[in-house]
Computed example of a mutant assay.
Amino acid sequence: MVKVLKGVILKCDSTVKQVIYKLNERKQIIIEDLDDTHLFINEKELEEVKIEVEKLLEENTYKTDLPPPSDK
């Protein structure tokens, strides 16, 4: 019997790939690891992946309390 899954190809760097692997431990997200920068993931989980990667980027972004530079 043939099993068909709908998925998307995701291009990412190794850091994002590790985040997705961590998510995959909780929920089946990765269908196939294609190479160093591409994953074939479950289409239904794409939004969750985007949200989790955004959270990670927010947590690891350097922020200052300085006002933006003026254009004078």
Rank of each mutant, 00 (worst) to 15 (best):
E54T: 14
K17Y: 09
D36S: 04
E54W: 15
L23F: 06
V19M: 09
N42R: 13
E58K: 13
K50N: 14
I41H: 00
K6P: 06
D33N: 07
T64C: 12
L57S: 06
I20A: 07
T37F: 02
K22G: 14
T61Q: 07
I20V: 06
K17F: 10
C12D: 05
L57E: 13
P69Y: 09
K22H: 15
D13A: 06
V8I: 06
V49I: 07
K27F: 02
D13I: 15
V49A: 09
Y62P: 15
T64R: 08
D71R: 11
P68E: 11
K72I: 13
E43M: 08
T37I: 09
V4R: 09
L5W: 03
I41L: 04
K44L: 12
L46E: 06
S14G: 11
K50D: 12
E48N: 10
D13P: 04
M1V: 06
G7C: 05
D13Y: 09
D71S: 12
L10Y: 01
I51P: 00
E52P: 00
L66C: 07
K22M: 12
V16T: 04
H38R: 05
V53E: 02
V8H: 00
N24F: 15
V4N: 02
P67F: 03
L56Y: 10
H38M: 10
K44E: 10
N24Y: 12
D36R: 13
I30M: 01
T61P: 07
I41Q: 00
L34R: 13
L66P: 02
I51Y: 00
V16Q: 01
S14D: 11
V49R: 00
K63D: 03
V53K: 03
P68R: 14
F40D: 04
M1W: 12
L57C: 04
K55W: 05
M1E: 05
K72R: 12
V53C: 00
C12Q: 07
Q28P: 03
K3N: 12
E32M: 10
D33V: 01
K44N: 10
G7V: 11
K11V: 09
I30F: 01
E47Y: 15
D33S: 12
E25A: 05
P68M: 03
L39D: 05
I9R: 07
E54M: 09
T61R: 11
E59K: 10
T15K: 15
E52N: 08
I29P: 01
E32Y: 08
I41K: 00
K17R: 09
D35A: 07
L56R: 14
K50P: 14
K50H: 13
V16A: 02
E47H: 11
D13V: 10
Q18N: 04
N42G: 02
L34I: 08
D35P: 14
L56F: 14
I29R: 00
N60L: 08
T37R: 14
E45T: 13
K63A: 13
K17M: 04
H38W: 00
L46P: 02
V49H: 00
E32T: 02
E25P: 14
H38A: 01
E47V: 05
K27G: 01
E43G: 08
I51T: 10
M1I: 09
V2M: 02
L46Q: 11
P68T: 06
L46D: 14
L56A: 01
E43C: 09
L34T: 04
